[in-house]
Design a protein around this nucleic acid. Structure first.
Lengths: 154, 154
DNA sequence: TCCATCTTGTTTGTACACAAACGATAGTGT
DNA sequence: ACACTATCGTTTGTGTACAAACAAGATGGA
């Protein structure tokens, strides 16, 4: 109608593709997070909280600012997540000499102990999901490219 | 330490891969939605609202229940989104004979007119993103597989 | 008919996610 | 010392997202 005839070139086709990609991304993200929910629930962690603990288990202490950058989260989003993890005594603040505005975060003893349970999470997920690891790696690479493209374009 | 020596098989490697995939998915989803934000803002739509309008532009009237299923959203999440679109007079309810609990949704005249502006959204996104369409298609397929795997495993 | 049960959409409570404004501290120039 | 600016984390407001409880209508059997 309004196109020259080549495939995936008129507005309606683009609207459909757009719907598939951005919608698929949102659905996949929500689905996977929902898939983690019952697995993380016994640990007493939500998915964002799990990501925070993963970061701190890998390297602590970490400055609040650096943690926000690693997780690509707005500080305003991270603040309440950190507050709940502190309330649950899984992480704690450390002062930073030289700057009274900033602070660091580290797992408490309780938080460090939780890592042992968390080690079972990935294998549980991968096993229940039943996807070959190669496919997960390919997907990861595709997502990485997409994130890089967004960063470049912003 | 605890592994037989093959790559990507011990717990630490799995923890790292897990972090890359589920974290990458969450970041990609948030990044892309953020990327849409300034493009959708002139239309007065948030990203979920945009997805609702896409569904209704493609086929209306749609039963509330069917819309929730299409978008894979909990009805409790869809209710306030629909309320705001009604408040902005972009969609409206239609009664359904035979069942007073249920109702349908359709774009208003104003909502239908908005589609003309929305037609420019996908090309804008794809152009600014600068990724080849083939790569987007491949990513879509990977996401579709992942969603299917989650559905299968749930 | 009457009642138990099921559906359908809303409400309530908790937890992200981000923009904008804020308060407090740090650094910088004069 | 003093103002100016920049940085850091928090607060406030709006908008998802989902679990659990709910209210109202529909449905089926005794």
């Amino acid at each position: 109608m309004s196109s020259t005839g080549s495939p995936v070139s008129n507005d309606d086709d683009l609207l459909a593709l757009d719907r598939q990609v951005c919608f698929g991304l949102a659905v996949a993200s929500r689905s996977v997070i929902a898939f983690y929910r019952p697995i993380l629930e016994p640990l007493g962690l939500t998915h964002p909280q799990y990501l925070v603990m993963l970061a701190l288990w890998q390297g602590a202490p970490l400055k609040f600012k650096d943690l926000a950058a690693q997780l690509r989260l707005d500080p305003a989003t991270l603040t309440p997540i950190v507050r709940r993890l502190e309330r649950d005594e899984l992480i704690e603040r450390g002062r930073l000499e030289g700057d009274d505005r900033s602070f660091t975060l580290s797992p408490t003893e309780k938080g460090a102990a939780l890592r042992q349970q968390a080690l079972a999470v990935p294998s549980t997920v991968i096993e229940r999901l039943g996807l070959p690891v190669e496919q997960l790696l390919a997907l990861r690479d595709g997502l990485t490219d997409l994130i890089a493209a967004v960063d470049r374009a912003t």
